[in-house]
Nucleic acid binder design. Sequence first.
DNA 1: CAAATGACGGCAG
DNA 2: ACTGCCGCCATTT
Length: 109
Amino acid sequence: MTETSFFERVYEVVKLIPEGRVTSYGAIAAFLGAKGSARMVGWAMNNASKMEDIPAHRVVNRNGLLTGKHHFPGTRVMQQMLEAEGVQVINDKIVRFQDYFWDPSVELQ
DNA sequence: CAAATGACGGCAG
DNA sequence: ACTGCCGCCATTT
């Protein structure tokens, strides 16, 4: 299993997401250089789902919607985790998403 | 090599 | 504002 690829790169970025912050698949993809491969980021997260060190709950789509919550053990786990970090979530959507948005290409530079 | 999949993104209606 | 379709890139079958 040579998963040593783009996924590993995604893990690094996701693990660097500060607590109480969120980012989008496209932002991560763009930071990795694969701008447009947002789907790949999601795929990476699918693999990362079995990783404990990957706060996938901090990664949402560009709408700030918890699209990936369906992949969690419980559909409410993701929301509870975010709320526990100070991110308010209503109707599976992050409140003030853009305010919590953490852009790796900007924060990490 | 070709087709299908995927936790997306952008644009058109 | 909401819904639907196409496009992108990488991985899998």
